[in-house]
Computed example of a mutant assay.
Amino acid sequence: MHMNSAPHLLAEDRPEYERILDDALRHAHERPDLAAVGERLNAVQLRTMALDATALITATAAAEYEHYVKAREELRGPAEGTGQDSDRSGTDGPNQSGAGIGAVVTVLAPVLAGTAALIFLLSGYLLRLLNPPPSFASTMVAAGWFFAAVMAAAILAAAVGLLITALRNGSTAQPVEDAENELPEDVARAREAWRHALLERGILPFLRDALADPDAGPASRTPQPSANRIPKIGYSRPDFTSPDDGPAAGPRPTFTSPDFTSPDFGGPEHELD
Rank of each mutant, 00 (worst) to 15 (best):
E16T: 14
E18M: 03
R19D: 02
D22T: 01
D23L: 08
D23F: 01
L25H: 03
R26C: 10
D33M: 04
A35M: 10
A36P: 01
Q45C: 08
L46A: 00
A50W: 04
L51E: 07
A61H: 01
E64R: 04
E66G: 15
A71I: 02
L75D: 07
R76A: 14
G81E: 04
T82F: 15
T82P: 09
G83P: 01
D87S: 15
N95G: 12
N95K: 15
S97E: 06
I101M: 09
V104E: 01
S123T: 13
G124V: 01
R128S: 11
F136L: 10
V141W: 05
G144P: 07
F147D: 01
A149E: 04
A149K: 04
A154N: 03
L156W: 06
G161C: 09
G161W: 01
L162K: 09
A166Y: 04
R168K: 15
A173W: 00
P175N: 03
V176C: 08
N181I: 10
N181K: 15
E182C: 14
D186Q: 15
A197S: 07
L198C: 05
L199Q: 10
I203W: 01
D209E: 11
D213G: 12
A216E: 03
P225F: 03
K232G: 13
G234P: 00
Y235W: 11
P238M: 08
D239C: 07
D239Y: 05
T241M: 06
T241W: 03
P247L: 14
R252D: 07
T256Y: 05
P258Q: 00
F260I: 14
T261C: 02
T261G: 07
S262T: 06
H270D: 06
